[in-house]
Amino acid sequence: MACDTKEIMISITGMTCNSCVKTIESEVGKENGIHKIKVSLENMNAKVSFDPQVLTNKDVVELIEDLGFDAEVET
């Protein structure tokens, strides 16, 4: 099956140091359906590529909010 990937930018507030970045990348990274996640502390957002068959934009946002950070999709 064609492994299609959708890429979105999510703005994240509440991150103050690199350990928060590492936590988000490792916790979200191990969820199934997530292909790649790159968190940027400077511009307070994350680029997430995931399988739209498995997850929706909202699911990805909820994954980050479950970690205790405020997240929303950058339109």
């Binding site: 140091c17 479950d66 205790g68 950070f69």
Partner: peptide, 13 residues
């Protein structure tokens, strides 16, 4: 928790 970001995250959760 290593920084205020982490304690903020725990507080929010």
């Amino acid at each position: 928790m290593t920084c205020s970001g982490c304690s903020g995250a725990v507080t929010r959760i």
